[in-house]
């Protein structure tokens, strides 16, 4: 069953742009990315859009659909009514290159600022031994496909461009949490999370969790546990005292 949907797509570049209306055919079972592709084929051959796997696993086709960050390939047209106007814009937190394509290099910069996995210096690479229960908590974070929807929706940088320098964003704070929870990682990450990567800027309003297409509980399982670890380290004199008195290796 086909119908003509009303699409409003943002067209422009880093200097100017506007929302342009397009009537476009929709068929049963299609997703928003299919419609954007049909637009390219029929009415707007120069429409720029980034996409790759069409299966929700590459994180390329991130955009904002009716004001909400979504993967275009995972947003079914059946979730909209036939009379609804569907607005598609680029991610609003990052500089736009053209149309629906943004420059997400902010995220790569932030990724490079996180020190990589640091095993004990006396442990050879072939000798890593870990129990499954010790690593499975952070395996949830490895599901991340780096679509940057959480980075886009986080109001700390979305509404405050000036915070970009001091705030790593939920995706990379989650990376710090993953490494901090790693049984073999020996780097000091808690103080750095707070002092270098802006964990204190997060006010746990959970938008990152709401938009995650992999359904990672970013706030509850990564950011809040990391905040609590920072409290252990920086703001809790009892824990500090306990760690001095009852110091146990490997605990």
């Amino acid at each position: 069953m086909s119908y003509d949907a009303r699409f409003r797509v943002w067209r422009g570049d880093d200097e100017k742009g506007e929302l342009v209306d397009y009537p476009v055919e929709v068929n049963e079972g299609e997703v928003v990315l299919d419609i954007i592709h049909r637009l390219q084929q029929t009415q707007a051959q120069d429409l720029a859009v980034r996409w790759n796997c069409k299966a929700g696993k590459c994180g390329s086709c991130s955009a904002e659909i009716n004001g909400r960050p979504r993967l275009m390939c995972m947003t079914r047209m059946s979730t909209f009514t036939e009379t609804e106007t569907i607005t598609v814009t680029p991610l609003r937190t990052f500089p736009v290159i053209r149309d629906l394509v943004t420059d997400v290099s902010f995220n790569y910069t932030k990724a490079r600022e996180i020190p990589s996995f640091a095993p004990p210096p006396d442990l050879a690479p072939g000798d890593y031994r870990m129990a499954q229960v010790d690593v499975e908590r952070s395996q949830e974070f490895r599901k991340c496909i780096e679509c940057f929807l959480c980075q886009d929706i986080c109001h700390v940088v979305r509404d405050h461009e000036e915070n970009k320098e001091s705030f790593a964003g939920p995706r990379y704070l989650m990376r710090i949490a993953e490494l901090d929870m790693h049984p073999l990682d020996v780097a000091d990450r808690q103080k750095e999370a707070q002092e270098e990567h802006g964990l204190g800027m997060c006010n746990i309003t959970k938008c990152c969790t709401e938009v995650c297409p992999e359904h990672i509980k970013i706030t509850d399982n990564a950011l809040i546990p990391l905040k609590e670890r920072v409290v252990d380290r920086k703001y809790d004199p009892l824990v500090w005292l306990g760690s001095k008195i009852f110091k146990r290796p490997g605990a």
Partner: peptide, 21 residues
């Protein structure tokens, strides 16, 4: 209009939100 700076090169959209829900 929503607290971002145009000089950052973001898509220039005046609406505070485009959410329809």
């Amino acid at each position: 209009s929503h607290g971002t700076v145009a000089s950052a090169g973001r898509a220039q959209i005046s609406a505070r939100t485009l959410r329809t829900d």
